[in-house]
Amino acid sequence: MKKSALDHLLDWSGRILLAAILGFVLLPFVVVAIASFNDGAILSFPPKSWSFRWYANAFEYRDFGSGLVNSLRIAAIGASIALIAGAGFAYVFNRYDFMFKRLLNTVLMSPLIIPNFTIGLGLLILSAAVQLPRSIWLVIAVHVVIVLPFVVRSVYVSLKNFERRYEQAAESLGGTPLHVLLTITLPLLLPGLISGALFAAILSFNEFTASLYVVNQRTQTLPVAMYNYVREYADPTLAALSVIYVAAVAAMLLLVHKFFRLEKVLNVD
């Protein structure tokens, strides 16, 4: 088929539009990435001379190192707890009918409506009232509350799309309910579980507002450490750190992609 001039026009204008959208989405990151190589001590754009020294500074600054370790620990533990609890909730919601089911669902989804700072503030007041130490577990608790709805949603959707016939076939072949759960249901739900945990981990890693209320000097997360830094210094270290940050999350996604195809995990296959 021969393309008309109009087809060509639409074809090219489509490409330009697409490039414009991508550019718009990526613009902030591109600006930050360029600014991170600025040699000057003031965060300005465009840079006049170039240097890697803010990257070095980002690695050397103590609070960033401990903040990163804290953030990774919180994300890993919080996402694991949220995955187990969320998957359990989703399973019960999908398979059983019980009293107050809708109410429980609403409560479970409420962190989507309640702002993060309210959750952080609430748990801060509560922990003070019962004289709970402001340990890393308090931060983890806040993060679990925030990410749980996402895990529940993700697992619930994969359970909804799950073909019950697989389980029935396995049962008819003599599989006990537990055996069927372990050999059929869980392996087939794995992409949904991974995606739930992945979103939970990334959300937790990026979480700032609620964390601000419940961390102290010892337990502060990387975003909080960055916030504290920018209050004192205005150099391009944070820009350098942002690039490292993006690289870390991308690496995480690549890792998942290596073991489970990302298209499948994100359900866009």
């Binding site: 073909e163 016939r165 697989y166 029935q168 076939a169 396995a170 049962e171 008819s172 072949l173 003599g174 599989g175 006990t176 309910p177 069927v180 050999t183 059929i184 392996p187 087939l188």
Partner: peptide, 27 residues
């Protein structure tokens, strides 16, 4: 169902997608 000793073939077959043919049959 798992104690009824019956066999069933569904409309969409419900073959376990994460297992080979032999593993499906051996289940």
């Amino acid at each position: 169902p798992h104690q009824r000793k019956i066999g069933i073939v569904f409309q969409n077959y419900a073959l376990f997608p994460h297992m080979s043919v032999a593993q499906n049959v051996a289940y």
